[in-house]
């Protein structure tokens, strides 16, 4: 894994992998979205069940992105690896975007189901806090000019956030809950029927691939930007 952490090798490998990744993401989204709009409506939720296929995967990826960011930050701090720093930095705006998507689609679903766009329910609230954690992380990166220093400070912040997230999650759950309980990952098998499970699963993979595709594009852009900057500095002196 760390062998590919060399920026040059990463550029070569990602150049070869990227077209395949883009293609796979597009195909999975096509299939997933087709299934999402063609499954029969739910007997309770009606047509609004289709929002679930864009909402739930966004929420999963939003959490995964924070985990990825924290892991990359840890590697960046411990191994002093520039590529890990860049990966963490570029994952943050994507994570914020997926969090925002989960919040927006969630509130659109909440309007017909709960009769209101927003309730101070456990998961909604902890996602709002997750969104602010992402914003703080991005703002800290942007505020510190020295790249090495910014990377380390942001990494420490990401790790503080990672330790705090379960506590925030727990405290907010304790505080109040209106949201449905876990219905997919539970012992004794999923509660929702297979008709809905398949599109959901395909959409989850599609979202995950989308995250990594965009992440690789962003990392490549950042590396090229840094090269351009150092080349410009070299030629001017």
């Amino acid at each position: 894994m760390l062998a590919y952490a060399n920026p040059q090798r990463f550029m070569e490998l990602s150049h070869r992998v990227l077209p395949w990744l883009c293609g796979a993401t597009a195909v999975l989204f096509a299939v997933g979205l087709y299934l999402s709009v063609t499954v029969p409506p739910d007997y309770q939720q009606g047509e609004t069940v289709r929002i679930m296929f864009v909402h739930v995967p966004a929420a999963w990826v939003a959490m995964m992105a924070y985990g990825f960011m924290a892991l990359a930050s840890l590697i960046g701090l411990v191994n002093r690896h520039p590529l890990a720093d860049v990966a963490a930095k570029e994952a943050a705006p994507l994570g914020a975007l997926f969090t925002a998507m989960a919040l927006i689609t969630g509130s659109l679903w909440g309007r017909p189901m709960w009769g209101t766009y927003w309730v101070w329910d456990g998961r909604l609230t902890s996602f709002l806090l997750l969104f602010f954690l992402y914003l703080g992380y991005i703002a800290l990166w942007n505020a510190i000019e020295n790249e090495v220093r910014a990377a380390r400070a942001a990494a420490v912040l990401a790790l503080i956030g990672a330790v705090n997230l379960p506590i925030i999650e727990f405290s907010v759950q304790w505080w109040t809950t209106l949201h449905q309980g876990e219905s997919i990952f539970r012992s004794g098998g999923p509660l929702i029927s297979a008709v809905f499970l398949w599109p959901l699963f395909i959409m989850a993979v599609a979202y995950t691939l989308l995250f990594f595709t965009l992440l690789i594009v962003r990392i490549r852009t950042e590396i090229l930007e840094r090269r351009t900057r150092s080349a410009a500095l070299g030629s001017s002196s």
């Binding site: 806090l129 703080g136 703002a139 800290l140 505020a143 925030i168 405290s171 907010v172 505080w175």
Partner: peptide, 16 residues
């Protein structure tokens, strides 16, 4: 910048 970093992390303290 400090409040943006700190306030989300303080949510559990305020809640309890």
């Amino acid at each position: 910048l400090l409040p943006l970093l700190l306030l989300p992390l303080l949510a559990p303290v305020v809640i309890f």
